[in-house]
Amino acid sequence: MSENTIKNPENLVYEKTSVMTDRVLHYCPGCGHGTAHRMLAEVIDELGIQGDTIGVAPVGCSVLAYYYFDVDMQEAAHGRAPAVATGIKRVLPEKYVFTYQGDGDLAAIGTAETIHACNRGENILVVFINNGIYGMTGGQMAPTTLEGMKSSTSPRGRDVKTMGNPLKITELLAQLPGTYFVTRQSVHTPANVRKTKKALKKALEYQKLDKGTCFVEVVANCPSGWKMTPVQSNKWMEENMFPYYPLGDIKVPEK
């Protein structure tokens, strides 16, 4: 069979889901945001809930997420996405509601909103992209920046004595009775991408059960902020981020 005949519609095995728009993503080359967006969009597509999903974009690199998801979306003030999502879900309880937030948004300025939405068990999905840095504002220290990790506001490396410790907010949230499903994944290899997708799918399926908040952390790279090539950054992430932020389910529903 020649290659030309392979490229016909009946042999199609993978293409961009139509729940993602055709806009060129503004993210830096190799950034995990795009892959995380696409997985969430694929899940919305596969569950057939595009018309019943309302997303909330944060402030940070993914501030423009609403350009890429072809679903109704709201743009929240910095850190307030879980409160905005609460407002949406309370008046439209039958809709699927998600927030998509970075580490500064979710684990620094929005810590109160995050914890309290999870503590109330708001029946929403929170997608948390943890790359340990403030990408949008140019590489400043994040609450999740590792000890000793350099950033523009920790140029000699994060000194935990004066700058605090990298915050494992996901473990913290798993302690709350309001959370139903809490997991940490990544999107840097095909296998990890598939696991992330599975987690996102479960999380949205659980939303129908009205059992509480589902929280999916995605440990991601920031090639520009970390000053590495994308491939190097993925390796660095495996070697440095994963030991501190180990991948896997942290809280799974009781059978």
Binding site: I6, L12, Y14, V24, H33, T35
Partner: peptide, 10 residues
């Protein structure tokens, strides 16, 4: 793994 969704596969 493509962050920009540029690849279609057959």
């Amino acid at each position: 793994v493509c962050p920009d969704a540029v690849i279609t596969v057959y």
